[in-house]
Structures are given as structure tokens and as C-alpha cells.
Design a binder for these strands. Sequence first.
DNA 1: GTAACTAGTTACCTGATGGAAACTAGTTAC
DNA 2: GTAACTAGTTTCCATCAGGTAACTAGTTAC
Lengths: 126, 126
Amino acid sequence: MEHTYGKEACQAKLRASRDALEVIQGKWRIPIIVSLTYGNKRFGEIKKDIEDISPKMLSQELKELEMNKLISRTLYDSMPVTVEYALTPLGASLNNLLQELLQWGIHFRSEMTGKEMKVPELAEHD
Amino acid sequence: MEHTYGKEACQAKLRASRDALEVIQGKWRIPIIVSLTYGNKRFGEIKKDIEDISPKMLSQELKELEMNKLISRTLYDSMPVTVEYALTPLGASLNNLLQELLQWGIHFRSEMTGKEMKVPELAEHD
DNA sequence: GTAACTAGTTACCTGATGGAAACTAGTTAC
DNA sequence: GTAACTAGTTTCCATCAGGTAACTAGTTAC
């Protein structure tokens, strides 16, 4: 069958997916955003949420997210100096995408744990 | 305010997001899946869609996607040997996520290009 | 024999990703 | 002075994602 009629549409989608991926790609960005959907947080609080992130990576990724205007950084001149990170409207606009991602993550895990137990004799290759 | 009540929920979401990301992370997996939403395709056809992918990466990522049961591979013993790749139901279940990803990619791009121009009241959005 | 089609594989290389640990800096407490 | 709290930064290092180019293999055509 020809799917040539969908060629430009396909190319447009490929471009859009790349635009989005460029911003949210990486091991830590989505986790950081998920953490911030639970309220504004300080550096140390995000670090507590995402237990295995190093301060270097957290700092680096927060900067990237701030540059892309997904989060905001507010410095409070309180006694030991605190910094609050928050989602911007643009960051918050990831909400639907995040919901789908999380739902699919759960779906995928249940599919895998349910199906991995099944008959392995059909395996064609290893 | 306190977000301690959401602590376990946050951790659950972080786990789900990691599960999902593990599978779809990378430069090429989403593009490959997007390409396959436009119909079953052969190796060379996907390569034509995603112009700058190398045969090595395409082969490698197709294998990963097949292992994770997102796509299927069918060998046809025709004259120059053709192979058809298709989304499995699990791969197709990414549809909602993809839609949100694409929509957000477009939204993000328009936000960025719109705001960089510094004409907020004129460039409302198209 | 050579070339071209199919669908890849292999070897080699580079630059980005990410981790560990030590260090900075300002303030409070002792 | 030392320690502990905040929020990072810096350096050094290893791994890995990804790119390039050449090569395999089976068939058709010349």
C-alpha cells in the first residue's frame, strides 16, 4: 500500500517529536519535573526525592530546564540562603504528556511482568 | 505548604517515569515508532523516513524495540529478501503518549520562537 | 567477472553523559 | 578555630550513545 500520502505528515511529526525530545531527553529531566509537580521545592528537597542523583547532575539539569523556561529559580536571602525551584506555565504544560508517560510506564511494566512468565519455546532467536 | 502527604505518590510516579523512559529513551526510538504509525515498513523505508539515521543505529534500535515487544519483525522470503516491521499492540499503545509528545513539541517550539521575537501581543499564536 | 538491489554487521573512533569526591562560600553555633 | 547547614562548583574519570565507513550475504541483471 502507499503511505506516500502521509509522507509530509510523517515528516512533520518526526520534527515535532525531535523538538520535544531535545528538551526532555536525558536521565534526570523528567524525574525533576515530576518532583516539581508535587510543589515548589528547594535543591535539597529535589535531591531527597530523586535519591540517586548527584549534586552535579541536579545542578546541571536544573540549569538546562531553566534555560528552556520549564522551571524558575528563586533565591531567598534567608539565613542559610535557600533557593526555590518551581514549574513555569510552560513546564506545567507538560502535565498531559507526563500523565500519559506515567500511565504507559505502568502499563508497560504490567505487560512485561505478566507476559515474561509465558512460554519461552516460541523464541525464534536469542 | 506541605507536600509530604504526596511523598509515596511522588516516588511511585518517579518509578513509573523511569520504567517508561528506559524503553523510549534515546535519539531514535520515538522517531522509529512514529514512522511505523504510518504503516508497516521495511528497513529501507524507515531509513528513508528518518533521513539521518545510520543503518547501524536503525538495526540496533529495531532490535531493542523488538526485544521490548513494541514492534514485530517479519521476514519475507521474496526474491531480494524483504523484512517488514510493524507496531505490536503494545507499541500501538504508545499512541496517546506520542500524540501528547508531538503536541507539546509544537507548543514548545511556538512558545520559544514566539517569545524570542519579543512581540507578545502580536504573535498570539497561529 | 561487476554492479545493484535487499538488509543488515563489524570495527573503529569521538564526544556527550554521568558518577565520585573534594572543594567553595556565607552564616550560625560552639 | 571547627562543625554543620544551605546550595552548589570543580576536577577527574569511566562508560556509553552514536557516527563513519567498510564489509557480508544472497539474488538478479549484464
